[in-house]
Design a protein around this nucleic acid. Structure first.
Lengths: 146, 146
DNA sequence: CAATAATAGATAGCATGCTATGTATTGGAG
DNA sequence: CTCCAATACATAGCATGCTATCTATTATTG
């Protein structure tokens, strides 16, 4: 049973979420909220406006999930929703100054986890695992370009 | 960003859960409930008694999570909790006859997903992905024998 | 043997994910 | 220009996961 691929992916996923949570909880955030803020910071650095739909597409999550995440982030003062001046249906999502101040720390945290994960992986193995994960996913959804 | 390991594991995990759900929903079950029934069927075939603690350890989930899963499975008539005659603290978890009848179908479903997943994987790749996933997880938790 | 610690399970309350559905705005066809 | 479809977001309600805490039982220790 320990050789079961599906089970091993599940365990890897849960272990990773826990690892991320250890740090983010100290920041009054969850792992999902932290991931979202990192994405918003990345987009901002690129000068891109981001609405909720963009976030859904990027993370491959549904609109109620993103609405909920943003509600909690907004309550805690990490983001702001501002109605788009060009399309009344969309909210543009902005980081607050408070968030910008700590974003570099978040980024370093993510890098630290990556390093820990990859500790004893050689170059070949690093490429291989991502290649295999993508291949596996392609076998399930015969679409998606990513 | 598409080369991010953590993100790719997340996507693989979600894709797999969705794939499992497609089938199990037709059986009035969720993927997690189906996985649990398969485990119980496996244990029963081995002649092993299973209590809630055993399930927690196997799936690496917490006791409230398992309590909830079993509550819903019991309501739907898939399992029964019976107080252990030797230890008043533990519930032994039993499948119902209704469940035993469909368990082989569930097993075939799981095998079908495995085949789909592994479609274009050669022997080396099959071993490699599990090896790499375990190694990754060992880098996060420097314990666990599994 | 009595008192205490450890263990198994349940309950409350929360975040994250989902589907189904509602509302408001925009876009397009006639 | 009007109407209808499509799009963006919100809301309700559910399952799965969690931590913190409670109860009941068993095991241990003095």
């Amino acid at each position: 049973m320990s050789e079961d691929l599906i089970f091993n992916i599940r365990l890897a996923y849960f272990a990773l979420e826990k690892e991320k949570n250890i740090y983010f909880e100290k920041q009054n955030l969850t792992a999902s909220q932290g991931d979202l803020l990192l994405y918003l910071g990345f987009a901002e650095r690129q000068g891109k406006d981001v609405n909720q739909k963009d976030i859904e597409r990027y993370f491959k999550l549904t609109n109620p999930t993103i609405t909920g995440l943003l509600n909690r982030l907004e309550e805690k003062g990490f983001v702001e929703r501002r109605k788009s001046p060009v399309d009344g249906r969309t909210n543009l999502i902005h980081l607050t100054d408070q968030t910008r101040k700590v974003l570099d720390q978040f980024k370093r945290h993510k890098d630290r986890i990556d390093q820990k994960l990859y500790r004893d992986f050689n170059d070949d193995e690093r490429k291989q695992i991502i290649y295999l994960l993508k291949k596996l996913r392609a076998n399930l959804n015969p679409d998606q370009p990513r």
